[in-house]
Design a protein around this nucleic acid. Sequence first.
DNA 1: AGGGCGAGGTCGATGGCGTCCACGGACTGT
DNA 2: ACAGTCCGTGGACGCCATCGACCTCGCCCT
Lengths: 152, 152
Amino acid sequence: MDAIDLALVDLLRGNARLSYAELARQVGLSAPAVHERVGKLEAGGVIRAYRAEVEPETIGLAVTALISVVEDSGADTDDVLEAVRAMPEIESCYFMAGVESFLLKARVSTIAELEQLIVRLNRTPGVASTRTSIALSTKWENRPQPVGPSSS
Amino acid sequence: MDAIDLALVDLLRGNARLSYAELARQVGLSAPAVHERVGKLEAGGVIRAYRAEVEPETIGLAVTALISVVEDSGADTDDVLEAVRAMPEIESCYFMAGVESFLLKARVSTIAELEQLIVRLNRTPGVASTRTSIALSTKWENRPQPVGPSSS
DNA sequence: AGGGCGAGGTCGATGGCGTCCACGGACTGT
DNA sequence: ACAGTCCGTGGACGCCATCGACCTCGCCCT
C-alpha cells in the first residue's frame, strides 16, 4: 500500500471505469503493472466493489429516510442485524455508540412503503423502538475525499 | 427508461466495470446498442458516476461519524451548505425534515480530527448547534437494491 | 392506405485495450 | 558475492470499444 496504490484508489474512486491503460498513464507505470496492483487491491479487500451511482428518483426510489433503532435489553444483536440485512430497502447500516444501536439508511418508492418498512422493523424480535427522520433532499452522497499526500 | 435500461442500471450498480460486450450479452442486445443506451443514461443524469468502493480503514479513514446540524433561526441555508460542502471530510449531506436541518456523514482518520471538524462546524456562521454520533462499525453501506420487475 | 421519417437496432471493420508470458533489474538475507 | 524474491517492462494475441453504413419498425401526415 504505497503512494502509487493510493493514487490508483483515488483515481478509481473518482471514476471506476477508467481503463488500465489510462490508469497506467496517470501513475506512470505500464498497464500490466497497474493490472496486477489493482488485482491485489481487490483481493486484499481494499477495493470492495465498483458501483454505478444512480440518481435514486430516476429508478423510482423517491423517499430517503434515516432510521434509528433501539434494541431490547437482552436482544441478540446478530439476530437483529440478520433481520435488517434481509430488508433490501436498507441501503446502509451502522452500528452506533449510544442508546440507539443502529442507524439505517433506507430508500423506498413511497411514504406508504416507508410506513410498511417501519412497521416491519418494529415487529422484528429484539427491536424495542425506532425513530425515523425523512430526508427532504440529498445534497450529496458518498463524495470521495482525496486521500493521497494532498494531491500529486 | 424501459425494462432494458433498468436491467443495465441494475447490472452497473452491481459491477460498474462490466464491459459493454458483457452487458450486451446479459440484456440480449448488441454491444453498440448497449453503448448508446448507457451513454444516454449518463447524459440524462440517471447514472451520476462510477465509483470504486473502498474499505475506509485501509486508506486511513478509521472514524465514521454522523452529525446532525441545527441552524440558527434566520440562517441562510445555502451559505451553511456551501460551508459544509467545502469540508472534504463530509462524505454525505442530507437536508432533513425536523429541527435538525442537516445530517452529515463524516469520515476522518482520528478522533482528534473529528473533534476539529466539529469545532469548525460549530464555528460556521448559521450553525446553532451540532450533535455527533460515532459509528462503531459500518455493517454495510450503499448496498444496491434490485429495482427491476422483481428479478429477471 | 401509402409514403416519408426518425428512433433505435444489427452488422462489419479497425484501432486500442486487457491480459498472458518471458525476461530483467534491484533489494534482502546468508 | 550470490541466490531468491518482488516488481516491473515489453511483446503478442485475442477481445473489446467504437464508428459508420444499413435495416426495420412504428408513427404521422397527406
